[in-house]
Design a protein around this nucleic acid. Sequence first.
DNA 1: TCTTTTGTAACTTTAATTGTCACGAAACTT
DNA 2: AAGTTTCGTGACAATTAAAGTTACAAAAGA
Lengths: 148, 148
Amino acid sequence: MPTDSRLPRVLHVLLHLDQIGDPVTSEQIGQMLATNPALVRRTMAGLREAGFVASTKGHGGGWQLLKPLEEITLADVYAALGSPHLFAVGQSSDNPACLLEQAANAATLQALEAARDVFQSELARMTVAELVKPHAETIKAFQSNRDR
Amino acid sequence: MPTDSRLPRVLHVLLHLDQIGDPVTSEQIGQMLATNPALVRRTMAGLREAGFVASTKGHGGGWQLLKPLEEITLADVYAALGSPHLFAVGQSSDNPACLLEQAANAATLQALEAARDVFQSELARMTVAELVKPHAETIKAFQSNRDR
DNA sequence: TCTTTTGTAACTTTAATTGTCACGAAACTT
DNA sequence: AAGTTTCGTGACAATTAAAGTTACAAAAGA
């Protein structure tokens, strides 16, 4: 299956929405993400349900930020996407009869759960607003260059 | 794609090989894993290259442990499988031009790398021999029941 | 020589996301 | 009121890597 790229994609979109302010159409977002409007709507639906963005129809409509990026953690975004399945690796089978297989599964699961916990807590440590901080200088340089 | 279950599967097999001692054919292992011999051979190939097991052809042949399970960590097994791709989640695209997309990708990657590091270190903390310890009583009870 | 067993190549199946198309519904414009 | 824009959603094909399957050559024991 194609790799699930919804998390970085919607983060990217949220940053643009914040920068633009005005409503942005799914068509425009589709160009940012190099994909088509229908996929954008599907992917953004969770963010709307979570109350992070609003979508309006008709002329001048599109997607808009409802909540400041300072108040949204990456974990919130991941949850809004429905907490997509994180791992390509999993157990051999559920409820195996063989005790040795149970032990092998349990050990695998333990490592996966530890990894998932760290993934989630890493996401929780950062708001979407903070996301650009490590890149702030590069972005500022680019913008002053552009505005010149 | 079907979930990658090679790690728990080969752990399961190593435990059986240790318990049995004699060579076990791919056919027999296939029955343990509810799959077919060709897949067993493909999956076990990495363990052979790593020197953990040996495979012998002809009558009485099959797969045998070469190294004590006390000397093989789960991380060693994972590496012997070729360190399969761990995540179903990934970045939006490699080398995006957009700086905001770069920032979104970097934040995602940071969380994924932290998770991968924990996964690997969890695997490194345990040998295959230790794997059964949490289940030792259940297994002992089953065996004495069986031998009675 | 015959049988067992591995090694490997080639191909199909599987699963979940991405990508695409279509069309109804809502909201703005004139 | 009519027309245009835009979202919402359903349906289906494309993608990708592992699992599953088949076939056969090669090695080794009987």
